[in-house]
């Protein structure tokens, strides 16, 4: 099952009924199959349009209006919401922080997941057990996980596990989540994120690894590629399609960071002004905080989406470029 999608598309491209038939014929496909497929897709597409695209369109519409505590605004303000947000130092610093966060967390999560996958693939006995152990945090909600991290592991008071350990080794209590000039909260957030997410990506990578034909390794072994070399010149290139997908999911996830932050730092209706991902900020502005500015919320959504698309394209371009280089 290891044929690349490129080959599949290649074979299918040759199957359509040639160039001569009318457009309608071509659209219907052989034996009207495309009509069947359209019918298959219809429920999903309709649902998507109604429950996803209408809200997206609505938010976009709101972004051009002054829409405080209303979804039927009357006062058109053009791009005011956009300029307001882009000149808001809190939102700006949040965007910058989370671009840096994405540049950091995407490779780190990828490397950790890959590391676990490789580690697991190198053992036989107990493989299923360890795989379950690494994977099972996926089942835990952000709410519960954040609770354990915030209230037990990294509680700033003396009874937190981390602080108890610190004191045992002669250290002092640390206020982990305090912020200010104390950046330890990043450690808390990142460890939480990795715990929750690494298992899932590990599974995707294991699947990718398993699709690498045995013969490729054999050939590499004959050429004397072992250890790191094998990883660099055999495993990673063969894993490229999986890598692209995983990186894209990670990138989207990094920019859409929300739940773990809200649950780690937020109180009821309150949120500190550090460790604030763009989405949390927008959420506070438009729904979860003390104001309900849906115009700003809509504008922010568009800005963040734009950034994700931009970074996604850049990432794809980078990966493709390295591929081209290799081919040369």
């Amino acid at each position: 099952m290891s044929q690349g999608s490129a080959t599949v598309r290649g074979t299918s491209a040759s199957s359509p009924a040639g160039r001569t038939p009318s457009l309608w014929r071509r659209m219907r496909g052989p034996q009207g199959r495309n009509l069947w497929y359209a019918a298959f897709a219809a429920p999903f597409i309709i649902g998507l349009l109604v429950f996803v695209y209408i809200p997206i369109g609505w938010s976009t519409y709101l972004s051009f209006f002054e829409a405080r505590a209303t979804i039927r605004p009357t006062k058109f303000v053009g791009l005011d919401n956009y300029t307001y947000l882009l000149s808001d130092p809190i939102f700006r610093s949040s965007l910058v922080t989370f671009m840096i966060f994405a540049l950091f967390i995407v490779p780190v999560t990828y490397v950790c997941s890959l590391g676990l996958a490789l580690l697991l693939n190198g053992v036989r006995w107990g493989q299923a057990f360890f795989r379950s152990v690494f994977f099972i945090p996926t089942a835990v909600s952000y709410v519960v996980a954040a609770m354990v991290w915030r209230l037990s592991f990294f509680n700033g008071a003396r009874f937190g596990l981390a602080n108890s350990m610190l004191r045992q080794f002669g250290g002092e209590n640390k206020a982990w989540l305090l912020g200010g000039d104390n950046y330890w909260y990043w450690f808390v957030v990142i460890s939480l994120r990795l715990w929750l997410q690494v298992g899932f990506y590990m599974i995707l990578i294991i699947a990718g690894l398993n699709r690498i034909p045995f013969e490729t390794y054999e050939a590499a072994a004959i050429d004397g590629a072992t250890g790191w070399k094998r990883l660099l010149y055999v495993t990673l290139p063969q894993l490229r399609t999986t890598t692209v997908a995983v990186l894209m999911l990670l990138l989207i996830g990094a920019f859409q960071a929300f739940d773990e932050f809200l649950n780690l730092f937020g109180g009821i209706g309150t949120y500190p002004n550090f460790a604030r991902p763009p989405l949390v900020h927008l959420y506070l502005i438009s729904l979860g905080g003390s104001q309900q500015d849906l115009g700003l919320g809509g504008a922010g959504t568009i800005i963040v989406t734009g950034l994700i698309v931009l970074f996604g394209l850049a990432q794809t371009w980078l990966v493709n470029r390295s591929e081209r280089k290799e081919r040369r």
């Binding site: 808001d88 130092p89 305090l178 905080g289 104001q291």
Partner: peptide, 20 residues
């Protein structure tokens, strides 16, 4: 004293107090 003002005030205050 809107949410946005509260946010901005909090940010300035936190710079002054926690970052000196």
């Amino acid at each position: 004293w809107s949410g946005a003002l509260g946010e901005a005030y909090g940010a300035a205050l936190s710079n002054a107090i926690t970052k000196g």
